[in-house]
Design a protein around this nucleic acid. Structure first.
Lengths: 228, 228
DNA sequence: GTCTATAAAGTGATAGAC
DNA sequence: GTCTATCACTTTATAGAC
């Protein structure tokens, strides 16, 4: 895994922090170099001096929190697997390993909580769009690793179908991160991420394991027909 | 407000069609007026002449297919409700009314299939970001209408929890639209949208009804009607 | 209605003074 | 390392010729 050389403090850290906040708020395309420097009252040339280019700054902003996050996801998954070697994990444990690091990593950031979640959501949503080659490879490996665990936990569900369900689940996660504010709307104040993820784990687990009780062998009938 | 005056043919239609394709491919922020006009070899000034501004063109592109789509969603939901008045709908019927119009509306468009789905996904994903005031109000009403139906179908699940699950489901739908190509990756060629939505309905229905008392014993009851 | 020309502002990047 | 000034473009929008 690549080393991210981001100083704990100093102008480079200040710039990156500003960039991350603005990217989270307005999206990657909508933030100019000048937006970032003016936000922290630094000079326009500082971005090119410290990051080489706008793209260098963007790449760093994408990897800064996601690489440690994905490392913790794998660590949690493998730690859970080590506890009961050979036995498949409970579905909820796998999903928990996938989503809980979002909360624990948030505690280590300098970003306001809401912006951190939104930044993550934007990064996940942009996956596959070629925003950062290195991050996409990192996520591909992560995804493979979790699909292996899911395959073991749900051996009777065709792997291909499981992949679709993992895809749907990922979409749900992205959406709750990018539009978290909509979730507490009826209750007045936004829900805590802890509460949201608790609900999400139950939702996703049920969706992933759908059809398990019934005969799994006959399950794969014609997929393309839903006329009634 | 709901009258969309878009001629069937002529320069305005050509421009809008080009804009929609480019928005779908590259995102709303990434497409300039010049990108659009050059794409169909028209003059730069044409956009401002026909739409007043870039924003006018964008607004029209957002509403053009989504307003008829949301109308069909409601029509299907109410048509299903009329068939068995008083009785709650099966969960799968509600979700089907929500997603199937995506396929039927696609048949009416001039856009390449893949681009139509991607355009829809981008519009849904941007909901709440203030891209088009009018569309957001339209979606809010749609969402309320479907939440009412879901509340009737799953009366024992707290409405607030149901709203969270509807939110997760919406995220899954957005993601399968914007990143459909990832779904057939292992199989070689991309899955048809019919097949994808068939899987999605089962996934989402299971997630929505999670924790029902009936879940353990008769969970497949209402599903017998549906042949996925 | 369609075009050219241009305004006015914004973009990333950089040379060179300090 | 920091800053100013500037280059070379691109952006939306529009005035006015045809």
């Amino acid at each position: 895994m690549r080393e991210l050389t981001i100083p704990e403090s100093g102008p480079k850290r200040v710039l990156l922090n500003a960039a991350e906040q603005l990217f989270a708020k307005k999206g990657f395309e909508a933030v100019s170099v000048r937006d970032v420097t003016q936000f922290v009252k630094m000079n326009v040339a500082a971005v090119n001096y410290h990051f080489g280019s706008r793209e260098g700054m963007l790449t760093l902003a994408i990897m800064h929190y996601t690489l440690p996050l994905n490392e913790e996801r794998i660590a949690r998954l493998e730690s859970a697997e080590r506890k009961t070697p050979g036995k498949p994990l409970a579905l909820e444990e796998i999903i928990d390993a996938f989503v809980r690091p979002i909360i624990t990593q948030n505690r280590k950031t300098e970003l306001p909580e809401a912006l951190f979640y939104q930044l993550l959501g934007r990064i996940f949503a942009a996956n596959g769009d070629g925003l950062s080659q290195a991050y996409e490879e990192n996520f591909r490996q992560l995804s493979d690793r979790f699909m292996r665990a899911l395959g073991k936990a749900l051996p009777t569900i065709p792997f291909d179908e499981l992949a679709s369900r993992f895809h749907f689940m990922s979409g749900g996660l992205i959406h709750l991160l990018t539009h978290r504010e909509l979730l507490g709307k009826r209750a007045g104040s936004p829900m805590t991420m802890e509460a949201i993820l608790g609900r999400f784990i139950r939702f996703a687990a049920a969706g992933l394991r759908e059809g398990l009780a019934a005969d799994a062998s006959v399950k794969k009938g014609p997929q393309a027909t839903f006329d009634f």
